[in-house]
Design a protein around this nucleic acid. Sequence first.
DNA 1: CCGGTTTTTTGACAACAATCAATGACCGCA
DNA 2: TGCGGTCATTGATTGTTGTCAAAAAACCGG
Lengths: 237, 237
Amino acid sequence: MRLPSPSAHPCSQCAFYDQSVWQPVGKGAMSFLTGGFSRSEFAEGQALYMQGDENRGVFCVSRGLFAIRAHSETGNTTLLKLAYPGDVIGFRSYLANDTHKTEARALMPSRVCTVAHRNANRLVQTDAKVLARLTARSIAEIDAARDRIIDAATESNQTRLARILGKLMQAHGTRDGAYLRMHLPLSRTDLADLLGIKPETVSRVLNRLKADGQFVVSGRDIRMPILQPHTSALSGS
Amino acid sequence: MRLPSPSAHPCSQCAFYDQSVWQPVGKGAMSFLTGGFSRSEFAEGQALYMQGDENRGVFCVSRGLFAIRAHSETGNTTLLKLAYPGDVIGFRSYLANDTHKTEARALMPSRVCTVAHRNANRLVQTDAKVLARLTARSIAEIDAARDRIIDAATESNQTRLARILGKLMQAHGTRDGAYLRMHLPLSRTDLADLLGIKPETVSRVLNRLKADGQFVVSGRDIRMPILQPHTSALSGS
DNA sequence: CCGGTTTTTTGACAACAATCAATGACCGCA
DNA sequence: TGCGGTCATTGATTGTTGTCAAAAAACCGG
């Protein structure tokens, strides 16, 4: 799990190096970073952390997709967000010095880079820029949550579902003729927990999206026309 | 607007002094705090800042109630949160060094304490504890947003409205016989923007709350029985 | 390939919300 | 006092979602 070269920046080969929380770490503190750094593979369904767990460090999704879920006492589950490659997760618990209030679970085979709690502390103490980058992630989290609140309050579930699928398609879809195609990494229940509706309703909303020609859905196999519907409508005349 | 004694901590008489972002400021940096500190009164309907404005500082609600709203290009308005006394607002814009993405407007006669942008910068540079407290507010903001997302996804609008009214009643209600009573500081449209529904639906949900005996509503005059409904139901037999 | 399980879909109905239109209540002000 | 104007309520209708039940499809281990 440890990387071969302890003097090189462990994120230097990562596609998200520029935005890495640890990018400011210089030569002087590099041993704090490489010492607590690890890269782990996660199978579909495997948890990175569970609700109530002590914080073990700061995590960065390197590949795949994670679901950040909250489980209530009454048994309800809300899928708070999807963590895509480049997203940093677990930092709320790290910054608050608190247990995790959500769980993170891989929705497909995924890879995560971890900086252990103790080492993160040392890096934050050594370089103020690291803390500044963590603060920036907090602000981005606030913005994302605000956007989601607005989205939920103003858009129909059909529109919201189309957006979620479109974003997943952009991240995980592959070209197939005039379509983008993917294996949907979320169950109907996951989609329901993401929208705050019941799985039966997800089925019906998907039917509407199919009827509108926005998606071709068959189980977890999903295709999305690459051309925007209004473009093709205009091209006909 | 300036306070009389420049050597005393301007928050020292405030009910929220302990949780004040500026509480850690010591004698050495006090002039940075008192110099940029001001206390302002706001009339009902008056804006503290508008969406798109440059950040002028960090604000703390001292008395009254503010609505934090987001206006979309399409003309939709979402009431993102209510800022109660003790709440710090405007810090997202301050920390991100960005324009305000929301507006803050007084819902009743209110008082706000302001630390000007430049002085806030000096205080943050002087004392790391100040930044730590701002970070803690960011985390609290993330938590509050998460709670709201869960609430919207799992609770009925009736339950959500009852909670909102109950919280307002707790903050602004006065005892009146067996009831807590208040003048509702929000219009039906505000309540609608808070729940993500239409004003007509707010009317109907209020009717259901009335029918259930949870509230007595007449225009903006609202009363809430102090005894829990289930207690009185049991006491009958 | 089979049997058993889980997931997803469909159907029927009730509850809830959006929309549009009309009415009613309230307020400020001439 | 009466006149607009805004805000709030109500009614009628349609669309959406929840709920419960059943059927269909997908999945899994042997």
